[in-house]
Design a binder for these strands. Structure first.
Lengths: 354, 354
DNA sequence: CTGAAAGCGCTAACAG
DNA sequence: CTGTTAGCGCTTTCAG
C-alpha cells in the first residue's frame, strides 16, 4: 500500500493495454466491449486495486448517485423520535436495490447556508426532507434546483407545489373518531396538537369532521404540545370545563372510587404521548379507560403497546413512508413525472383503550 | 430561476470583470486581493446567486470538507440505541465550528463494497466509525487510504494500530466494583457482556481485577447478551449456583417475603439493560436492591434514572466521545500527528441501588 | 495584486 | 467494437 493516491483510470488503461474510454466502458458496464478487453481490464483493475474516483466521475457525468436525507440538527430530538428510525430504515431499504448511496445530512440550524451550499454544490442528485416540524423554509428555494421530496404535508402553501408524501392525517383522525362514535360513545373529545404543524391541524380537522357529521359538540377540544405532560394538562382542562353532565354517559362498570365523572365518554388524542398523559391524568381523577373514557391515540409509537391497558391508536406506517419517499425521489431524479401528493394509508390498531 | 444549471465561476468572473483566478481567491477568502475586486466579485456573486460547485472544487483541490460517520445498516437498532444519539450530537457539535459537513453514511451490510467505494472514491476527507459491535472488519483496509477514527476499542488487534477513542471500560468496571466492595459488601458478583465485544471483555476484566485484589470469588460471574432478558436469566443462574451461604450477608432490612437469600450481596452488571433485568428477577425471588443485593450498572442509558429504585451506574460520556473522535479526525485530516489511543473518563453515578 | 495556463480523473460524443 | 478529443468547474502554480 503505497501512501500516494489511488490508481487512476489512466493507469488501468495502460496496465490493460487499452484506452481510457474502454476502461470506462467496462467499469460502467456499458455494452459492446470485446470479451478479451473486458477480461484484460478486470484483471488490471484487480491487480491495481482500482477504485473509481466518484468526484471526477460526478464532475464529468453530472450525476452523483447520492441522495441526501436531511435532518435538522436537533439531532438529539430526531434520533430520540420513535418515528424517525423506521423512516430511515425505509429509505435505506428502498435504496439498497438501487445504486444510490444514502447520505444522512445533519443540517446545522445555526449555519443553514452550509447545508444549502452542500445541496446546491452538486454533491447529491436529490434530497429527502423529513419535515416533522414546520420551520424548514430553508429548503423552499432548492426545489427548482434539485429534486426534493418532503415527508409530511408542507405547512407552507408554497410547498404544496412540491412533491411530498404523507399519511392522510385528516381522514385517519376522522375514522378514529367515527370508530369511537360507532362503538356507542356519544361525546368524543379531542386533545389536538399544535396548530402550527400540519399533523396538528389536520388531525383536529378530521376529528371535527366526524363530530360535526353527527351533530356533536365541537367545543370538546383542548390543545397540547404532543408531549405527555401537555396531554395530561389538556385533559384536566377538558374535565374542568366539562364535568359530568346530564348526558347519558356510558360510564357504568367503572371501578372508580370517588369519581366526579366526565362530560365526555371518549377521547381522541392527536398523538400517543398525549394519550398516555391523558389516561394517567384521568386515572388520577378516578376515571378509567376504556370504562369511563375510551381513548384512541395516533402514531402507534414504541410505547403505545406497552401502556396499561395497551393503547388503541392509529398506526402511521413510517417505514413505508421512507420507502415511498425514496421511490418517488428516484423517479424524479431519473426525469420521470410524478404526482406531487402521495398519501399512504393508516390503520387503526385496536387494543385495550377503545 | 432559469432551469438550466447554476452559474459557474466563469460567469461570475465575466460579470465582475476579473479573471476566474481572482473570483476563486475571493470566494475562498484568500488574502491579497484588491478591495475593489473583492467588492466587484461579491456583487457579481450576489447578482448571479452563485454557489460554488463543490464537486469541481473537490476534484481540483483534492479536498471535500466532508467527513463521514459510518453506521451499520442495522439502523433500526442503531437509532434505537440510546448510546448513539448523543454520539451524533457530539460529532455535530464539534463539526459546527469547522467548515466540515457531516455525512452520516448508512452502510449497507449486504453490499459493503458500496460503502467502500464511496469512502475510497474521494467523497470524504475522513471517516468516523462507531464500532459498538465487533463485525466491522470491512474498514480495516481503508485505514491507510483515508484517515479513520474508531469509537470504541477495536476488537481486532490489527486495529490497535488505528486511531480510536474509547472509555476505559476496564478501569471503570474495576472502580465500580471497588465502590461496591468499599461500601461493605463482601461478595460481588457480575453479569458480564458477550466476550466477543471489547466492552464485554474489558468490563469483565475490570471486575475481576477488583475482586482478585481483595481475594474474592471470581467464579461469581455469568454472561448475558446486553439485553434485559439475558440479565434476568444470568442472575437466576447466579442464584442457582450460589444460594444463600454461610457468608455474613448484608441482608438485614429486606422487606422480602419468603426470600431464599443469595450467595452474593452485590452485583456489577456490564450494562444497564442487564442490570434492570437482574433487579427484576431478584425481586421475583423476593430479593430487593439495594437491601439484599447492591447493584451497579454501566452506561447510564436513558432508562437508568427512571428505574425503581433509580439505578446506580457508570456513566459513559457519549457526547464527549463524539466530540473527541471528531477533533481527533480533524487533526488527522490536517496532517497532524495524534495519539492512537484516546481515553475519556467515566463517572460513577450514585443513585438508589448501591 | 492578478491573469494565463495547466490540470484534477473521468465521461461522452464522434469518428474510425 | 475502440481510440481520439473535448471538456465537467474549479484550484493553483507561475509569470507578470
Amino acid at each position: 500500500m503505497i501512501p500516494s493516491g489511488n490508481p487512476t483510470l489512466e493507469m488501468v488503461a495502460a496496465e490493460a493495454g487499452v484506452s481510457r474510454a474502454t476502461v470506462s466502458r467496462v467499469v460502467n458496464g456499458h455494452a459492446s466491449v470485446a470479451p478479451e478487453a473486458v477480461a484484460a481490464v478486470h484483471a488490471a483493475v484487480a491487480r491495481l486495486n482500482y477504485v473509481p474516483n466518484r468526484v471526477a466521475r460526478s464532475l464529468a457525468s453530472r450525476r452523483t448517485d447520492v441522495i441526501a436525507l436531511i435532518v435538522p440538527e436537533s439531532t438529539s430530538t430526531v434520533f430520540a423520535d420513535p418515528f424517525f428510525a423506521p423512516v430511515v430504515r425505509g429509505v435505506a431499504r428502498a435504496l439498497a436495490e438501487t445504486d444510490f448511496t444514502l447520505n444522512l445530512l445533519v443540517a446545522s440550524e445555526t449555519r443553514p447556508e452550509k447545508t444549502r451550499r452542500y445541496l446546491l454544490g452538486g454533491n447529491v442528485d436529490g434530497a429527502l426532507v423529513v419535515s416533522h416540524h414546520s420551520g424548514d423554509h430553508s429548503y423552499l428555494g432548492l426545489g427548482d434546483a434539485l429534486p426534493i421530496v418532503f415527508g409530511g404535508r408542507p405547512l407552507n402553501p408554497e410547498l404544496e407545489s412540491r412533491h411530498y408524501v404523507d399519511v392522510d392525517n385528516r381522514h385517519a383522525a376522522q375514522s378514529a373518531t367515527e370508530y369511537l362514535l360507532g362503538s356507542g360513545r356519544r361525546r368524543v373529545a379531542t386533545i389536538a396538537g399544535p396548530q402550527d404543524m400540519p399533523a396538528g391541524i389536520d388531525r383536529l380537522a378530521g376529528w371535527r369532521d366526524a363530530v360535526e357529521a353527527v351533530g356533536g359538540d365541537v367545543s370538546l377540544a383542548e390543545h397540547g404540545a404532543f408531549t405527555q405532560q401537555s396531554g395530561a394538562e389538556a385533559v384536566i382542562r377538558l374535565l374542568d370545563r366539562h364535568p359530568a353532565s346530564g348526558a347519558g354517559s356510558a360510564s357504568t362498570g367503572s371501578a372508580s372510587t370517588g369519581s366526579a365523572g366526565a362530560g365526555f365518554d371518549a377521547l381522541f388524542a392527536a398523538n400517543d404521548q398525549m394519550a398516555a398523559g391523558a389516561i394517567q391524568a384521568l386515572r388520577n381523577r378516578g376515571l378509567s379507560s376504556p370504562a369511563d373514557v375510551a381513548v384512541v391515540g395516533f402514531d402507534d409509537d414504541a410505547f403505545a403497546a406497552t401502556l396499561d391497558p395497551p393503547l388503541t391508536t392509529v398506526r402511521q406506517p413510517a417505514t413505508e413512508l421512507g420507502v415511498s419517499m425514496t421511490e418517488l425521489l428516484v423517479r424524479l431524479i431519473s426525469g420521470e413525472e410524478a404526482p406531487h401528493r402521495t398519501i399512504i394509508p393508516t390503520e387503526l390498531v385496536r387494543r385495550g383503550t377503545a
